[in-house]
């Protein structure tokens, strides 16, 4: 069972929800929490545990072999990302633009672009009682989040049974990294705030999930600020609102200290339990 927590707008509370929800579940069952926001993972600020594993992650990049190349230009013509450029009698490869699709390498008639391993980041696994926490972090200077997100999900699939509850703290936005982080999820929780900006980005996120044909629901964070437009939008579009987390200065204070919230604020915990119940029911169905 895979639950992805995404948002559209950044800073709406994905990590707060992911970490607290995972900790609440871990009071009773085994749970895997994965921070898939590999460009700036931050769940680890709130989850402490013993390190169990540390893997270097690689992606495959073509390397030009000048001595066998016939300068036919097929590689350049077929690269959709302009990561391979022919400049006169030279072939230039831009590793940051490369999506590791192998097209240039496979199509090269003289095998002059063999794929070579290049380090892109690191995966770490921690354990705290019932919770396994996995954090992947892209190296500084790396531009492609998707391969690392994909490899992290692959790692989780391989190492944990399909019945284990998995919570994916996803990247913000609606572009490739979010799609990679949510495309295998059984359910996507979209966290928003009840403001015009929150609604605008929620709309984009909902459209993305519809396109992916993903079951999804909304959690309204900082309920009480802004207006009722998000609620009305969800009603009109038949999107279940799983919880309304009340706006509270205390949440921000605990967050700023890197602490979990639900153990300290009963109203927060009550809303979290609604989400827990929803997920358990969803799992049964």
């Amino acid at each position: 069972m895979k639950i992805a927590i995404a948002s559209g707008k950044g800073g709406t509370g994905k990590t707060t929800l992911s970490t607290n929800l995972a900790a609440l579940f871990a009071e009773k069952v085994q749970v895997v929490l994965a921070d898939l926001d590999v460009e700036e993972p931050n769940s680890g600020l709130f989850i402490k545990g013993d390190i169990e594993r540390e893997d270097i992650k690689y992606k495959m990049i073509p390397e030009w072999n000048e001595s066998t190349c016939t300068l036919c230009g097929l590689c350049q013509k077929n690269c959709n990302f302009h990561a391979v450029i022919q400049l006169g009698s030279q072939i230039l490869v831009f590793p940051e633009l490369c999506h590791s699709c192998y097209a240039c390498s496979e199509l090269c008639p003289t095998d002059s672009l063999p794929m070579i391993k290049q380090r892109m980041g690191q995966l770490k696994q921690f354990r705290n009682k019932n919770m396994t926490f996995i954090e992947s972090r892209l190296d500084i200077g790396q531009e492609q989040a998707v391969p690392l997100i994909g490899q992290t999900i692959e790692y989780i699939e391989k190492n944990f049974s399909s019945s284990t509850l998995k919570i994916f703290d996803s990247p913000p936005g609606t572009s490739c990294p979010v799609i990679e982080a949510t495309k295998d999820a059984d359910f996507v929780i979209l966290v928003t705030e009840p403001t015009p900006f929150g609604l605008h980005d929620l709309t984009l996120a909902v459209e993305t999930m519809k396109e992916l044909e993903k079951r999804h629901g909304v959690v309204i964070n900082r309920h009480g600020i802004g207006n009722n437009d998000v609620l009305e939008y969800c009603e009109e579009n038949n999107i279940p609102v799983l919880a309304k987390i009340p706006n509270s200065r205390k949440v921000a204070e605990l967050y700023s200290k890197g602490e979990l919230v639900y153990t300290e604020i009963p109203e927060f915990k009550a809303e979290l339990e609604k989400i827990e119940t929803f997920i358990l029911n969803f799992q049964k169905s």
Binding site: N80, F81, H82, A83, I85, L87, G88, L92, F94, L97
Partner: peptide
Amino acid sequence: NEAHGAGPKTSQQLF
């Protein structure tokens, strides 16, 4: 229409 690699592509054209 190009999401990525506009710089290298235009450079190649310029070359």
